[in-house]
Design a binder for these strands. Structure first.
Lengths: 260, 260
DNA sequence: TTCAGCAATATCATAATATGATACTTCACA
DNA sequence: TGTGAAGTATCATATTATGATATTGCTGAA
């Protein structure tokens, strides 16, 4: 079978993780066959691995359909994550204040490679389900939060990100033109925040401020989403931005190292 | 080494999962030695497994302290979980409405064995960090949500739960007396909701309504927490309960099977 | 600076463990 | 009742994980 590098690598464990990652927003319930297909693993291997994950409580098994689903243990992992991320503990009370103050949806996003990931979300109004779920990963270049963070990078890195980081179409308005993304980020460099419209969801305006530590480089951002039917970018800048910026400034990451 | 049952069980995978579970609220950053100690695994095994988890992106490694931490992938798993749990999608918009309406913290709890697990939390006021984190598991008998659910069980099962399910002290007011818990649950049977005081946090009042499907048996509950300094149980029942109950009734689980 | 002590990392012969082909069973649907 | 697809069980084989040991690198004390 495929030889995975050296003796410090446990292949069976890696394969088991592939089963877990086979589940996503469109694959919520998978049979053995589905799992084999999605992971590219042998039928017997999937059988054994899935059985192990089931016994260990990582997968629920529907007794009638025999299909597997993520178990509550997946939420327990998120629980452990939250305690390990100091920034979240720092930020949560201030985000609550902000969301109550603004009456609009407030998010905490962290940089995760070339994507952002929503770590905390406080919905204040009905929105799409996808806008309420934590753990969502989006291309950093396409989000106000990502642009706000990239704007804090040194120029060469900034340019490298603009040139090479991935893009993906979400709405007809999603910008795939890297030059206009560069303009947007340059504006963020000057102004200290980023605004975007309709990138992820049509008629949605996003505004974000970076959370910068002593180094000046941001690994996280506070973001606010509002409806373009009720707001204009100008009003967002006038009414939302000041408090958003105060909140971002008040959340200073404690001195310890950050994930990269 | 320890022989784990049959040939349908992949020991290495199970061991890898043990590493993941070694992280919790008080163990947020673990060295190889820590991991070996907490999992009871051999030093070499831990080295290989942790290395694998790191390569696969499940553990972040601090380059200077060499210690491991949960990675963003743990949130991605939560993300996948949310899409797989139909109840959450059903409930979220209604919970948002409710929290805006009440101006108080609202939670969605599901039954997970003999514990409840918080699946969705909408904090409206500053609270303890622990009260904002999803994935928290608590003994069902000690929470208003758990009692509300148990109250929907057939009498024998109810009694079995009251007699055997675990209890744990969280505050000086946490009830360890199963007779008084039985009283509380019996009240919930009659009234259709449960109220508790100071069980998890001092000076906190919790009120919960079960979410019942066609079978009449609940696997989830909507719960609201308020400060005992500002509320009395009577006022909670008069002012919060009606809207809480409406919300719980409006969230009917779709017909598919539930995790057990 | 040197040294001691500890933890992380690398190596390797061994056999235990995962492998995957195959056969059996169950279930859904015709 | 029959057919096919999917889940389940078995087993001989050698690949893969094992864990003892050696090496390296780091931290703090002398």
């Amino acid at each position: 079978m495929e030889k995975k590098q050296n003796t410090l690598f446990v292949g069976s464990l890696a394969k088991g993780l592939r089963l877990l990652r086979a589940f996503d927003e469109t694959h919520t319930e998978l049979s053995l066959g589905d799992l084999a297909q999605r992971t590219g693993l042998d039928k017997s291997a999937v059988q054994r691995l899935a059985n192990t994950l089931h016994i260990e409580g990582m997968l629920d098994k529907d007794p009638i359909t025999r299909r597997f689903r993520p178990s509550h243990a997946w939420l327990e992992l998120a629980y452990a994550y939250y305690w390990s991320d100091q920034l979240v503990g720092q930020a949560i009370p201030k985000l609550i204040d902000l969301s109550q103050d603004l009456g609009e949806t407030v998010n905490l996003a962290e940089l995760s490679g070339d994507h952002i990931i929503y770590v905390s979300r406080l919905p204040c109004k009905r929105t799409y389900f996808a806008a309420t779920v934590i753990g969502r990963r989006l291309p950093a270049l396409s989000t106000s939060g990502g642009r706000a963070m990239i704007a804090t990078f040194p120029p060469e890195e900034r340019e490298h990100a603009i040139r090479t980081w991935p893009l993906k179409v979400f709405t007809p308005q999603t910008t795939l033109d890297r030059d206009s993304i560069r303009d947007s980020i340059n504006t963020a460099v000057r102004k200290g925040f980023a605004i975007s419209s309709g990138q992820m969801i049509l008629s949605e305006i996003g505004v974000a401020c970076p959370i910068t530590g002593p180094s000046g480089r941001a690994f996280a951002a506070v973001q606010c989403s509002v409806s373009a039917h009720l707001w204009t970018p100008e009003r967002v800048e006038a009414e939302i931005l000041p408090r958003l910026q105060d909140t971002a400034n008040a959340i200073s990451p404690s001195s310890q190292a950050h994930r990269h």
